[in-house]
Design a binder for these strands. Structure first.
Lengths: 252, 252
DNA sequence: CGTGCTGTTGAGGACGATCAATGACGGTGG
DNA sequence: CCACCGTCATTGATCGTCCTCAACAGCACG
């Protein structure tokens, strides 16, 4: 019983951390988190949103890594962003009906997801306005990250990949996890960076030679975060959560 | 007197149109629009947000074309998006304190801007929840457009430019204006597409030769919108406004 | 009538894609 | 237990797209 609670608590920790940083009041968190229904466990490659295509809920990634992508007519895949524990998978759908119908959210590693029914979500938004603001903020931050990605994609591949890796570290640490290992395959990274796998691999070895990365099994470990960020012109602020709040929040 | 009203009316038309499409109720529009304070007229190159750096207000583009960009250390410029009459220039700042400090909004053509004081904005958001939803939606749509841009930037230059031009038409028509002329210089388009001016120019002539574009003075006119969209794999839906509303709106 | 911005054209070179092949690893089924 | 297969990582060689540099023409501006 205690063990179960502990485990449940653990899986909610990233989301709790994220909502806190997004400006949700600590006292409101308990109620909000308690309304989340735990969903299935998914394997790499599974379509997270297709699991319940009905779209009657907001989907939260409770554990693991997912990616938002689109498959092109020629079979190639563009990954727009990776998502980590505590991230909302389909935030746009709530305010915008048929947002990006072609966009898919897939599991990159083994994942566990949670649901928040639309009906419940609506209640929460009315009851806790800071929750709505948090979701809105989340969208604004995502937009900023996307701009940074676009910017980095104009750079040569070495710096582009460096930026991508820094972004992953920053996204992880947004949920309170400060892990230097990025468990993402080169194939996935290539699809995110818009480079060929072959070239990503070459860039990798260059980064290894520069002692910025090292390999842990099949995965990547970032050795020198600072130098990697400078190389990729990564601006950590682009994913920062607010602690200070705008007048909007003071008002409501 | 009547003429003044008419002109004032005219300048609010795009914003009115846009808010309507974003789901703001028609009855609420009058009050919202009446609270907008008209700002100065700006010339090409002017920094729109620096005009009133205080950030005590939301800035609306009333007329003309602006662009959101960032200047890099090497002097080059990345344009993230062009903005048209009715667009909000600094929507992110309201929910997120120091969002993108390096990001600038500049006037691409002669512009007229309007202001909505934060205090007033807060009042309106409380009074007309659909207005808040509209702003949130606006952000989601912007994110979708950015994803489409990222996607198109993986294509060869010809299709990339085609996509960019289609996006401009779509953005214009979002405010009710259906104009086939795009008054943006090749330099600006190059900075937006992430290509060199030289290469953009070559692509241009190719598009001219394909009878997709024609030149009107120094400006571009889109001759065959459909073929251009197909060439650039442009998905018009990515900028679509909702008419049907999600459960969120029904609730509030 | 210069000065600056935009548009246009040419030539050379770099970065990264593509094609092709191989090795390593884990899972599956005979 | 081993053969087989799929995914991922790695390496080499060729080729194309697009950048860079450079120069010049048109046009608006003072």
């Amino acid at each position: 019983m205690t063990a179960m609670l502990k485990e449940a608590q653990g899986s909610f920790a990233p989301l709790r951390q994220k909502l806190l940083r997004l400006g949700v009041h600590e006292n409101d968190l308990g109620v909000i988190l308690s309304r989340i229904r735990t969903g299935p466990r998914l394997q790499r490659g599974d379509n997270i949103l297709a699991a319940r295509h009905s779209a009657n809920h907001l989907t939260v990634l409770m554990d693991g890594i997912a990616c938002l992508y689109e498959r092109l007519t020629d079979g190639s895949r563009q990954i727009y962003s990776f998502q980590y524990a505590g991230d909302f998978c389909d935030l746009g759908r709530h305010v915008l009906e048929a947002t990006e119908p072609k966009t898919v959210v897939g599991a990159v590693t083994e994942c566990r997801i949670g649901y928040l029914e639309n009906r419940v979500l609506d209640q929460l938004l009315v009851q806790y306005p800071s929750f709505g603001t948090a979701l809105w903020r989340s969208c604004v931050i995502e937009t900023g990250a996307l701009r940074a990605t676009l910017l980095s994609s104009r750079q040569p591949a070495l710096q582009c990949v460096a930026h991508l890796l820094c972004e992953q570290l920053a996204r992880q640490s947004a949920t309170g996890i400060d892990e230097a290992i990025i468990p993402i395959s080169q194939v996935d990274l290539a699809d995110a960076a818009g480079l060929s796998v072959v070239h990503v691999n070459r860039v990798f070895q260059e980064l290894l030679a520069m002692n910025l990365l090292s390999k842990v099994g099949r995965y990547i470990m970032v050795v020198d975060r600072g130098r990697l960020a400078r190389l990729g012109n990564f601006d950590g602020r682009c994913l920062d959560m607010p602690k200070v709040l705008s007048s909007w929040n003071v008002k409501i």
